[in-house]
Design a protein around this nucleic acid. Structure first.
Lengths: 219, 219
DNA sequence: GTCTATAGCGGGATAGAC
DNA sequence: GTCTATCCCGCTATAGAC
């Protein structure tokens, strides 16, 4: 009779197993939390999806909240990493806007489920999102560059008069992010092709940039 | 000794109580479903909030799903009722867009929680939303009017060339609806004043209209 | 119609053997 | 580290007394 042999491996094998299980849990948690939100995802589901014993999930991550926070943090990291030096190299309002739309859209294409995920949880804790954005150095630098370039070019008469620069930024973000929040819906409307969504979002970059170019150029 | 007297009223009183309880349940259900979504709202919470025995909720509404469907339907009705004849009276692209932004924004101001609510549940069942929009007669008529006016004015050279009219409509909807989906966030950013949000959203109507006027006029 | 009580399930978390 | 078994809780829904 052969007995269960699972705990007979070397120390090295155990460590490897540890890493594998941890990341398997993370992967399943990400998938399920993003899909169904915090409230509609159970630890049992996560364990099953990760092919791991339920007790292991609590062993590695202490609680459901802890695990969720890791996934939520990760989502922000993924988006933030998209905003790099390129974003800060704009020398005019139009350049700033063009760079932003480019970076933001490509970030969303790489993480299409992130906005929906973040907004799903926004109602419970809006402050988490705000503090995250405030912490981001790139976001701060971009804001400063964006608003001061608007100020400057308005005085020079290069662009139209903008009464509410924050509103302008909100409008740009709206156009970029909205289709991703409503992705399941937009996909249905566009058609069944899988790659179609990405293609459409990529094409939108030009359109959105064009809209704001036209708007700003009217004096 | 005075006994409990609750079931001693006349038939008329009972009917009144029935209506009161029913609507109390509906009101609490709306509040909680909209706030927390289907998964994170319990029948116990609803009953407690409505000051009604738990069994009564099932007695009147059979199941949680049934109750939720009523609230979801209601949300669509509220938005749809906003799109009336005014919306269909546009004789040009600009008029159509102006009317749409006006109607849609005012509808959202009256039901600010609706977009967040609908989007919260979109991931589970996008088809529900699509079939609802397709059913709406006003929406269909507006679409036809909108697209044919674009076609006409493009040929006449009155507006710029629009390669993707659906995308244009998506952009308009994006700008109008996005701040409402992120309302808790936007409110924090704008400031603590309660009426400030509505004021800001109302002011945006002019800005958004202006953006598309500028965009369309560039040949 | 109204309530209490409870069936029956699934949730998060942990104790304790190995 | 790993697993089983279990605690204790809250959930939806309903049976059944009044």
């Amino acid at each position: 009779m052969e007995l269960k042999n699972k705990s007979k491996g070397s120390v090295l094998e155990k460590q490897k197993a540890k890493v594998d299980k941890k990341s398997a849990i993370i992967n399943s948690a990400r998938k399920l939390f993003v899909q169904n939100g915090f409230g509609c995802t159970s630890m049992r589901e996560i364990a099953k999806d990760a092919n791991v014993n339920l007790a292991m999930v609590n062993y590695y991550f202490k609680s459901k909240e802890t695990l969720f926070d890791i996934i939520y943090d990760e989502a922000f990291e993924n988006m933030a990493s998209q905003f790099d030096v390129k974003l800060l190299s704009g020398n005019s309002v139009i350049e700033n806007i063009t760079n932003f739309i480019e970076s933001y859209t490509e970030g969303l294409i790489k993480n299409p489920e992130v906005p929906g995920f973040i907004f799903q949880e926004i109602y419970k804790n809006p402050d988490v999102v705000i503090s995250r954005v405030k912490k981001s150095e790139v976001a701060q630098k971009f804001r400063n560059s964006f608003f001061s370039s608007i100020d400057k070019e308005m005085k020079e008469g290069k662009i139209r008069n903008i009464e509410n620069p924050v509103g302008l930024l909100l409008n740009i973000v709206s156009m970029c992010a909205f289709p991703f929040i409503g992705k399941p819906l937009v996909e249905k409307v566009i058609g069944s092709e899988k790659s179609e969504f990405t293609k459409t979002m990529r094409a939108r970059k030009k359109d959105i940039t064009e809209i704001f170019k036209a708007y700003l150029s009217v004096k």
